[in-house]
Design a protein around this nucleic acid. Structure first.
Length: 293
DNA sequence: ACTGTACCCTGTAGGC
DNA sequence: TGCCTACAGGGTACAG
């Protein structure tokens, strides 16, 4: 579910609910998510004040006063929801006015002001870990991740350097978190459409024989940034499970140009092409065969 | 080193 | 209605 715009939107929702506040109690309602909970998880979080909530790639990171950080990945269906209502019928199981989904409420962070941060994840591809803040960039989950696409390190020279000589296609290149952080299946398709590049094109065509960026690389870099910025402004894309931390939906799905539109007309002005579906590595890619080359 | 596939898990949509 | 299959926004472990 969540790619960079969704995770960033969740972060922006969680920050005011957590920053400067103390987590007084941690409940875990099963033994694991994708991985077991961090060792002594509750003891390391309970009583800690949250100093800030930030994001690296698709990871949410809450810095605690202890010097440790709580790292969370939402996988495909993970949700953090700020809950102020609800009745606790049995320990850790809440019934909400809207019905809720207690079956998949796997962890609850109780904040000192009485709010609860509920982690819900039906497929349990998400996970959490704890790490020392000072060594975070060397943490096993973080250290190999590529540049943030909204920062200055994401530029045509970098893209040319990292794609030179690679035979993988552009879909796989942009999906690779070691190259650029935070893109997933939706936004790769959207960025390639915006750049006018086929997902089937070889990554090596982003640089010339001297390793300098081609015009394609110069188009792709801002296309990625613009798609992500527009999606953040829209609060992400809600196709199925994804919600903001306050439970509301994103609406970038209404602005998508190609994703899940196979067989429909290309929306680029004057193009007249038809959106196609191709499967790369078991994941669907959508592109216009006319304006993406 | 690189590349592609299978798999983790649950829910849901669509075909029959 | 029910059963079955395929697929879903992610990442990793392997095989070749």
């Amino acid at each position: 579910m969540p790619e960079l715009p969704e995770v960033e939107t969740v972060r922006r929702g969680l920050e005011p609910a957590l920053a400067g506040k103390r987590i007084v109690r941690v409940e875990t309602r099963r033994a694991d998510l994708r991985f077991p909970w961090p060792e002594r998880f509750a003891a390391r979080v309970e009583g800690q004040r949250v100093e800030r909530v930030w994001r690296r790639a698709k990871y949410l990171i809450a810095e605690l006063a202890s010097g440790e950080s709580l790292i969370a990945h939402l996988g495909m269906t993970g949700r953090f929801t700020i809950v102020r209502d609800g009745v606790e019928e049995t320990p850790g199981a809440y019934v909400y006015e809207n019905g809720g989904d207690p079956k998949h409420d796997h962890a609850v962070l109780h904040v000192e002001d009485g709010t609860r941060i509920v982690y819900n994840d039906p497929r349990r591809f998400g996970f959490m870990d704890m790490a020392e803040r000072d060594g975070l960039e060397q943490h096993k989950l973080i250290k190999a991740i590529g540049v943030e696409p909204l920062g200055n390190d994401w530029n045509a020279a970098y893209l040319a350097m990292r794609s030179a000589g690679k035979s993988v296609n552009l879909k796989a290149l942009l999906m690779d978190q070691r190259i650029v952080a935070g893109l997933g299946n939706i936004y790769v398709s959207e960025a390639l459409h915006r750049a006018g590049l086929s997902p089937n094109r070889k990554a090596s065509s982003l640089s010339d024989v001297k390793g300098r960026p081609t015009a394609r690389a110069e188009r792709l870099v801002p296309a990625v940034r613009q798609v992500l910025e527009a999606a953040i402004l829209a609060g992400g894309s809600t196709l199925r499970d994804y919600r903001h931390a306050d439970g509301t939906m994103g609406h970038f799905q209404n602005a998508m140009q190609v994703y899940d539109r196979d067989g429909d007309a290309c929306l680029r002005a004057g193009c007249g092409g038809v959106v196609r579906l191709v499967v790369h590595a078991g994941r669907s890619s959508y592109y216009c065969g006319r304006c993406q080359r």
